[in-house]
């Protein structure tokens, strides 16, 4: 079936991030529902008390504290050493995980291309707010070559990294997530872009992420041919990942049944996610990225 095979060439000719989209993204900001500790000074308040001008609290002096933060006025009045604590403005870890299994190569544009566009768009929002942006492929490798980017000037690096990314991985999602969790310890926002088409199941992988206490967003990408398959006849369906074969004689009844199965699959994923505080968003490759970001993700509270 010609329409089931994605046209890689066409989908890659499109620019990953259009200037119009970039202009729209510049006004946005990533929102975390939790306040995390950053490593570097950023533009958002941190749990950690630091050196900003915003006063936070006092505490008793203990040996070893920086003498510069002792409140001498307080010592004069009360004859006790107190230390002034200030709010620290910190940066935010923003991780994006892209499913790079071969099943992502389907659809028009391909789910993989769509995922890269989405990751680029969200990453750019992070860069504009001086967050620590890292986009990783779920390929299960121990040493990720994904750069950690900060600042608007890193946009070209982000795009370059995305364009070099390929979908060839055959490792299960669980393994890949596990490898990610071992490599990265920072807290922050994590966006997982995947089609969830993993026969070993996605639940284990999500549990790993939940255990990391990250603010997790799951974006479930499906192509149109998965949502409404346009096939007929007696077919031997070959799984592109494990070459598994499913023999079907397509009939309207079968198509209806498939749609029911897909709907229950989505419902299951949404249910599983919401139980664990993961924000679940299902999208089709037919829905444009800017629309997804500006409307659906804003509704979900990822951006504002």
């Amino acid at each position: 079936m010609a329409n089931a095979v994605p046209s890689k060439k066409n989908s890659q000719e499109e620019p990953l991030l259009s200037p119009a989209l970039l202009a729209q993204l510049e006004r946005m900001e990533l929102v975390s529902r939790k306040i995390f500790r950053g490593r570097m000074k950023g533009e958002r308040r941190s749990k950690r008390k630091g050196q900003s001008v915003e006063f936070a609290d006092f505490r008793n002096y203990v040996a070893g504290d920086d003498l510069r933060f002792i409140d001498w006025n307080m010592y004069a009045r009360l004859d006790k050493l107190f230390l002034k604590l200030f709010m620290e403005e910190e940066d935010l870890h923003f991780y994006t995980l892209i499913d790079v299994s071969p099943s992502m190569q389907f659809g028009s544009p391909t789910k993989f291309q769509y995922a890269k566009q989405l990751a680029g768009a969200l990453g750019y929002i992070g860069l504009c707010r001086a967050d620590r942006v890292k986009i990783e492929a779920l390929d299960g490798s121990r040493n990720s070559n994904a750069p950690t980017l900060r600042g608007r000037s890193s946009l070209w690096q982000l795009v370059d990294h995305l364009e070099r990314m390929e979908s060839q991985s055959t490792v299960t999602m669980t393994e890949a997530v596990k490898a990610f969790c071992l490599r990265n310890t920072g807290k922050g926002i994590l966006v997982l872009i995947t089609d969830l088409m993993d026969k070993s199941g996605y639940e284990e992988a999500l549990k790993y992420l939940v255990a990391r206490d990250l603010d997790i967003y799951l974006i479930h990408v499906l192509s149109q041919e998965e949502i409404d398959p346009d096939i007929n006849g007696d077919l031997k369906l070959v799984d592109c990942e494990d070459q598994d074969i499913a023999e079907v004689s397509v009939s309207q009844r079968l198509i209806d049944r498939y749609k029911q199965t897909l709907a229950s699959f989505i419902e299951q994923a949404r249910d599983f996610s919401s139980r664990r505080g993961i924000v679940y968003t299902m999208t089709s490759t037919e829905r444009s990225v800017d629309r997804l970001v500006s409307r659906y993700l804003r509704q979900r509270g990822l951006v504002r």
Binding site: S103, M197, L237, V238, D239, V248, L254, Y258
Partner: peptide
């Protein structure tokens, strides 16, 4: 035997297999 089935590559047979199992085909 279904000798005349046309092979077609799909992203995943996961859902299809479930569907077909459901239908007891």
């Amino acid at each position: 035997l279904k000798l005349r089935r046309v092979p077609l590559e799909v992203p995943s047979t996961y859902l299809w297999t479930k569907t077909v199992e459901d239908m007891h085909v």
